[in-house]
Every structure is written in structure tokens, then in C-alpha cells.
Design a protein around this nucleic acid. Structure first.
Lengths: 330, 330
DNA sequence: GCTCTCGGTGGAATCGGTTCCAAAGCCGGA
DNA sequence: TCCGGCTTTGGAACCGATTCCACCGAGAGC
């Protein structure tokens, strides 16, 4: 394995000069540069990234801070990120975080001796990241002082509820995430707020017990829905904070022998891949796109440019799980 | 940031001794070791992984070679791997490979100057890995000279076809992957072979055109199924090489107004999460488990132990997409 | 009492880069 | 011709660990 010294000897120059060529410093005459490049080619030399990192204190990797990276919506975002980072030939270090300890460790490493070139944070409302001297972009969240790619969750929540209202529903329940998650996720809470605003604005009362919260998996949503259907005042529509939860809702309804959307309308959120397959009506947000844009922004930031924050549009995609409430029950 | 030299001074010893303590070499007297450990604690010192790697030539990361890492079945396996690697506090470098160029690059890096501690290969039938001096475990594939966690795809394919046969089907088609993928995936081909063996053994002819192949996504499976349903001899059952493809099959059938399983039975493969949700009858393989076992095997290999290869069992999970063929058509 | 071992230790050399500093080469201007 | 300043260059110092080698001292053997 050739080293920089071998190249220097081969080209008949000093190591400093080779290094300058490598990092294309302008301080090298064209003739010398050419000679060095020939030597590099002849030797098939490529610099040792470890040695380089030891000197500069940073690696060429991009780290991604991501909660529960196997969640369908997160996977979609990752696909977007990876699609651009792969092309840029950047190493990717995935830090999966599912607890505050993991988050703390990950953040601590960002002030440690071995730094990545850039950082993308997904969904995690981390603070204290302004102090780390690193290009950072936030996807599906905001981090102060950083470029972010986000949506307006509250507006999207409102639009979802309005859609249900427009279909004629008045007894609309909400199944979302518990709002005390130690990692501090905000999306579900904001969507809930949007939902409440929409009902208020329409003058329909939010019945007690119509907002159900728990962990964001299908089974929990199933259980919460069962509780909802057990209550004296059954909802005619349920707005779920995610598609995964919407699937749980539908499952619970079917288990009760209820027809969706005949007896119960269900509206999801995210528009992940299986939503299309199962015909779920849902609030679409550009998941893949958010990742793609985030990665692009990061790359320009790494290159010294400045990207702009974006708030991406959402829309309702109508499929087959929402219908007007039955005449007798509305 | 404290360095090893600071620790050495603080403890009143040489750097060599500190290093020995760090790598708990037996060549250190208990008294000295204690003194050094106190100094380390006092200074809050932790070794710089880059410097360490530069010396030793290997990093403490585990790299995972994975094709199309956002595929549902792959994600399940990754979850299994990550569940054990996270606990072991190991950095994970994910190398997504979707082309031979990417594969070549990834493999080339394995003979480069910066080596991971271990490697897990998912689904990729890579060769020439015996030469890289590294603990390697293969998941969902075999790599010669390496521990592997795999299933018997041919047997599983056979059992799937036998299940359909037992339900009374005779016109059974197969929708699988194209078998000329540059990355050389073998699972689909082996499952097809199993399917063919089962039909032969049962004395039922494999009709021409009943084996359809294309890229492993839902849309392609949809299209291939449409072709199948257009043919003069319609199948009464379709065996898909993956659940994703099975969903495409079902979609195509429904688009034709066919009832599943009334008019067409569909059998999937993998048993990914959505299979349960949509009620897909499928050949189950332990995806999460395969990842978990693979990672465990790797860790013991890294620790100098030797793990055993396993071939995991598969089973048929009966849900709602397979039924006996209609009397009139069977 | 004198060697011979051998466990324990210090420290220099090394890994392969980057970067800073000094110096060489070259130019034009006086 | 000499000098100042600018570009270009070589090479030492440094990043922070590991590892090898030399050495020290204490206990064993005679």
C-alpha cells in the first residue's frame, strides 16, 4: 500500500507538496501538480482516510441521527437521504436512537475528537446542537440555528380534520402518540392541536375521551380504538396520527364487525407505501423528498454554501377509507 | 481533551503503561493499573478511536453489506442485527449496495487500509471474501468459509407449492425475480426450483408461461399477474417469491374483479409485517431472528470464538388468501 | 555474593496524513 | 546590481494512539 511518502519520492517532491495537490491547494504550480498526479496514478495511491482524519480531526462521513430507524416513514426518509449521499460517495454512519441515553451518547460524540463532516437529524428535537461546529440539517423537526426540512404539522392536522368535517362527520376522534415521550417528539401533538382547532372553528365540541394516545404502533392503536368503540358515544370517524396507527384502527373496527368506511371512516397520516396498497385515505407528506432535500442541503452546507429551510406542502390523498357518516348516526 | 500523555503524566508512568492498561494487557502490576485507572477517571480520559485505528489498522466498527436496505424484509433483518449491536455499543457502518460497482467498491474497501472489526453480509452471494482477514457472517446467503444464517429456499419453495397442491390446486403459477440480476441473488431461483420439484413430484405439469419473472417490486408483480390472467389457461393459484410481490398479485387480481381467495389463491413468502395486516397467507421465515443470530455469531467470532452455521426453519402461516379452487375451474 | 531470569516499565519509533515555517527561486523596480 | 516581495517548495512537528526494544530490579540458584 503506497503512502504519501512514496508518492513524494516517485514525483521527486516533498510530502507537503503532495498533500497540497491532494487537497487541491492553489499554491502549487501546474507543472508540479501534473508531475505529482502522474506519480499518484502510477502508484495507484489513495490517501488513508484514518491518517487524514487524525490530522484534521474530522472524518469524511455523514452521520444520521434517527429514532427507530425501521419505522416505515423513517425508512422512506432514509431512502431519500441515501439516494443523494450514495451518489456523492459519502460514508454514512447511522445512529439509531431510541432512548435519551442513546441520544446523549450520540450528541456527546459530536463534541468528541472524531467528528463527521456533517449531520442530519431526523425527527428528533435536539437542542444544544448550535454549539457543535458542524453543518447540520434537520428533517421532520427543527433545530435552532439549523436549516430544516419540515412540514406544518398543525396545519396538516387541521386540514385532515376539516376534510372529515367536510365529509359530514361530527363525532371525530383522534388516535395519536403519547405526548410525554422522553425523546420529545412533537408531530403528533401538533397534529392533535390542528385537529382541535379545526373542530373548534367548525363549532363542534371535542367530546371528552375522544383524544386517545399511546405508543405509535399498530397494536396500541388497535387497543385505543377498541376503547373508543366501547364508549357510549361512538365516533363516526377516526383521525390517526400515522398510517401505522390508522391500520390498527381499521383492524380494530373490522374485529368489531364494523365496515370501513361504511360504519367508520378512517384517515391516516404520512402516506407510506402500504397506504396505497390498502387503500387508506391519508394526509400525504413528502417523505422521500424530505430526505432528498435534507441531504442536498447538507451537501451544499458542507461545501460552504447556505441552504434555505423549507416547509413542505401536505395534501389529502383520497382513497377508500373515508365516506360520509351513515344517515342514522351522524 | 486529555490524551494518553496527560494520563501518563498524571499517573506518573509512561505512555506504554497507560496503553497496556487500556488494552488490559496482563503485563501490568495491580498497583500500577490502579494508579492509571484513577488518573483516567480523574481526567475523564477516553482514547481517540482514530489514533487507535491508525496504529492498529482497524476500526471498532461493524460494517453491514446490504442490498436495497429499505426493502421490508431487509429492514426486518437489520432490526435484528441492530438490536444486538446497539447493546454491544458497536458503531455500525451501513453499505447499501444496488449495483456491482457499489459491491466492488465495498469489497475493495475491505482490503484497504481501514478495516472494520467484523462484517455481516446480507443476501449478497459475494465471493473472494475468504481472503479478507476478518470475521464475516452471512445472513440469507452463504459465503464460503464463513458462518451463515440461512434458510433452505428450495425446500421452502417446495413446501409452499405442496401447500397449494394440498388445497387442491393444479394450475399454480409462480411470480418471482428475474434470475439474471447482476448481483446474483439466488433465493427466488431456488424457491422456483422447489416449486417445480413439488409439481413434478405430484405429477402435475408445469404449464409453459406459468413461471413469470421480473424485478421484485409490487408494480412489476402486478403486471406479470395481469399477463398470467390474460392467458388462455388461467392459474387458480399464484405463488409469489416475496410478500411484496404477493401484494402486487392480489392488486392485479382485484383490478380484474377477481376475488381472493375465491377466484384466485395467493401465497406469499417472507411474512413481513404487513402480511399479517392484510391477511396474506405466506411462507414464514425468521427475518428478525436471522439478523439477531447473525450479529451474535459475529460478536462471538470477533471475540475469537467460533459460531455455527444455522439453517433456520420456515413454516406456512395460514391466513386468508388461500382456499380450494372453485369447483368449476379446478 | 554473583549471576541469571523474568515480570514490569519507560520511551522511541511508527502509523499516514496536514500544516506551519523557513527558505529558495523568480520577478520587477530602483 | 541589489533588494523587496511573492509564489512555490521542502520538511519538521504534530495528531494520539500501539508496540517493540531496552533496561531496571528483585528473587532464585549456586
Amino acid at each position: 500500500m503506497a503512502t504519501i511518502l512514496d508518492v513524494a519520492r516517485e514525483a521527486g517532491v516533498g510530502v507537503g507538496t503532495v498533500s497540497r495537490v491532494l487537497n487541491n491547494s492553489p499554491q502549487v504550480s501546474p507543472r508540479t501538480r501534473e508531475r505529482v498526479e502522474e506519480a499518484i496514478a502510477r502508484l495507484g495511491y489513495s490517501p488513508n482516510p484514518l491518517a487524514r482524519s487524525l490530522s484534521t480531526g474530522r472524518t469524511d462521513a455523514i452521520t444520521i441521527l434517527v429514532p427507530y430507524f425501521t419505522t416505515p416513514s423513517v425508512v422512506e426518509r432514509l431512502r431519500g437521504i441515501v439516494s443523494v449521499l450514495d451518489d456523492a460517495d459519502r460514508a454514512i454512519v447511522l445512529r439509531n436512537v431510541e432512548s435519551i441515553e442513546q441520544l446523549d451518547r450520540a450528541v456527546a460524540d459530536l463534541t468528541g475528537p472524531v467528528l463527521p463532516t456533517g449531520l442530519v437529524v431526523i425527527s428528533l428535537p435536539v437542542d444544544g446542537l448550535a454549539t457543535v461546529d458542524l453543518p447540520v440539517v434537520a428533517v421532520d423537526t427543527t433545530v435552532d440555528g439549523c436549516v430544516s426540512i419540515d412540514i406544518d404539522d398543525e396545519a396538516a392536522g387541521r386540514s385532515g380534520a376539516e376534510y372529515l368535517l367536510a365529509a359530514g362527520h361530527r363525532r371525530i376522534a383522534f388516535v395519536g402518540d403519547a405526548e410525554d415521550h422522553p425523546l420529545g417528539f412533537r408531530s403528533s401533538a401538533q397534529r392533535r392541536r390542528g385537529y382541535e382547532r379545526a373542530l373548534e372553528a367548525a363549532g363542534v365540541a371535542i367530546r371528552p375521551g375522544f383524544v386517545k394516545q399511546g405508543s405509535p404502533d399498530r397494536a396500541t392503536a388497535h387497543r385505543l380504538t377498541a376503547e373508543l368503540l366501547d364508549s357510549s358515544e361512538q365516533p363516526t370517524a377516526i383521525f390517526a396520527a400515522s398510517d401505522t396507527q390508522a391500520l390498527g384502527v381499521i383492524e380494530a373496527a373490522r374485529a368489531r364487525g364494523l365496515d370501513v368506511p361504511g360504519d367508520l371512516s378512517v384517515l391516516g397520516f404520512d402516506d407510506v407505501e402500504v397506504a396505497a396498497y390498502v387503500g387508506l385515505t391519508t394526509v400525504h407528506q413528502p417523505l422521500f423528498e424530505s430526505g432528498r432535500l435534507g441531504a442536498e442541503r447538507l451537501l451544499t452546507a458542507v461545501g460552504g454554501g447556505v441552504g434555505e429551510s423549507v416547509t413542505l406542502p401536505t395534501s389529502i390523498v383520497e382513497r377508500t377509507t373515508v365516506a360520509p357518516p351513515e344517515a342514522g348516526r351522524a
